[in-house]
C-alpha cells in the first residue's frame, strides 16, 4: 500500500486568547486594547491585519514581538513564546513611521543592525550591499539618514528588517505616509519577498495594497477580531471595491453591536 504523506502547513505565528489592557497614566483607568485575539498564520502566508485607527493592530504586532506583555492569553512565534528573545533572530520588524539614528549613514545603520543579530562582518558587508540594491538606496547609503526622505526611510526600514534573512516579517503600516511612487517601490519589494517564500504579517488600512499583496486578511475592530478570511474569498482578482465593502460591512456591524451591548470596549 502506498502512503502519501502530506506535510501539514506549519503554524509560525499564533495567538491564543491574546488580551491587553492599557492603563491611563494618571487615573490608572483600565482600557481594553485587545480582547481575546485568536490567530494562526502559516509559513509562507502573507497576512494582512486591517482595521480602523485604534483597533489594536500595532498592539497585536508588539505583543507578538514581545515588546508588550499580554494580560491574558499567549503569543507564539515559530512555536516559542514571544517573551523568548532568542527567537527574534529569525524575525524582521519594520515599525510604523520608523525613525533611525540620524547621526548614522544608511550603510552604518544597516551594519549596526547586522551586528545586533551577531552576524559575521563579511556576511553583514555582503548583505548590506545586496539590500541597498534591493531597496534602491545605492546612491544614498553613504549619506546620513537624517537627510533621507520619508520614502527612503521606509525602504531603509525594510532593508534593516531583512538584514538577518528572516523567516517572518512583521511590517507595521509599511505604506503609511508614502506617495504613489514610494508605495509602488514598497509593493515591489513585498512582492519579491513573497515570491521568496517569506511569511509576511502586515498591518495596514490601505485596502488596495492589502488586496494586492495578501493571501489572508483579518479585520480587527475595537480590539476584537471580527473577520478572518482568505482574500480570494472576499475579492476575486484583488478587487479593491469588494474588499472595501467587506471592511465597511464588518466594521459597521461591529460598531452597532458595541452600541447595542454594554459599551465596555472603549475605543482607543
Amino acid at each position: 500500500m502506498t502512503e502519501f504523506l502530506v506535510d501539514a502547513p506549519q503554524v509560525v505565528i499564533e495567538a491564543v486568547n491574546l488580551t491587553k489592557d492599557r492603563l491611563s497614566s494618571f487615573l490608572k483607568k483600565r482600557t481594553r486594547v485587545l480582547d481575546g485575539l485568536n490567530l494562526e498564520i502559516y509559513a509562507g502566508q502573507t497576512y494582512g491585519l486591517i482595521g480602523p485607527n485604534g483597533a489594536g493592530k500595532t498592539t497585536t504586532v508588539k505583543l507578538l514581538l514581545g515588546l508588550l506583555r499580554p494580560d491574558e492569553g499567549e503569543a507564539k512565534v515559530l512555536g516559542a513564546p514571544s517573551s523568548e528573545r532568542e527567537n527574534l533572530a529569525q524575525v524582521g520588524f519594520l515599525p510604523e513611521n520608523p525613525y533611525f539614528y540620524s547621526h548614522l549613514t544608511g550603510r552604518e545603520f544597516l551594519t549596526f543592525v547586522g551586528k545586533l543579530f551577531s552576524l559575521p562582518d563579511d556576511l553583514i558587508k555582503s548583505r548590506v550591499k545586496s539590500l541597498v540594491e534591493k531597496v534602491s538606496l545605492v546612491d544614498a547609503c553613504d549619506k546620513p539618514t537624517g537627510k533621507y526622505s520619508k520614502g527612503m526611510l521606509q525602504r531603509l526600514g525594510i532593508a534593516q528588517a531583512l538584514i538577518n534573512d528572516p523567516k517572518i516579517l512583521f511590517l507595521d503600516e509599511p505604506m503609511s505616509g508614502l506617495d504613489p511612487l514610494g508605495r509602488m517601490d514598497v509593493r515591489r519589494i513585498l512582492h519579491e519577498l513573497k515570491a521568496e517564500g517569506k511569511t509576511i504579517f502586515f498591518n495596514s488600512h490601505l485596502l488596495p495594497d492589502v488586496g494586492e499583496l495578501c493571501d489572508r486578511v483579518g479585520l480587527l475592530v475595537n480590539g476584537k477580531m471580527v473577520a478572518d478570511s482568505p482574500v480570494s474569498d472576499i475579492a476575486e482578482g484583488g478587487n479593491f471595491k469588494a474588499l472595501e465593502d467587506f471592511f465597511l460591512e464588518h466594521v459597521q456591524a461591529a460598531m452597532h453591536a458595541t452600541k447595542d451591548s454594554k459599551p465596555h470596549a472603549e475605543q482607543t
Binding site: L67, R85, L88, V91, P95, P98, Y99, F100
Partner: peptide, 14 residues
C-alpha cells in the same frame, strides 16, 4: 522618545 528602542528590542538584544 525617538522610538529607536523598538528597533533594538525587536532584535535578539537583552
Amino acid at each position: 522618545e525617538r522610538r529607536t528602542i523598538y528597533l533594538i528590542f525587536s532584535k535578539p538584544v537583552k
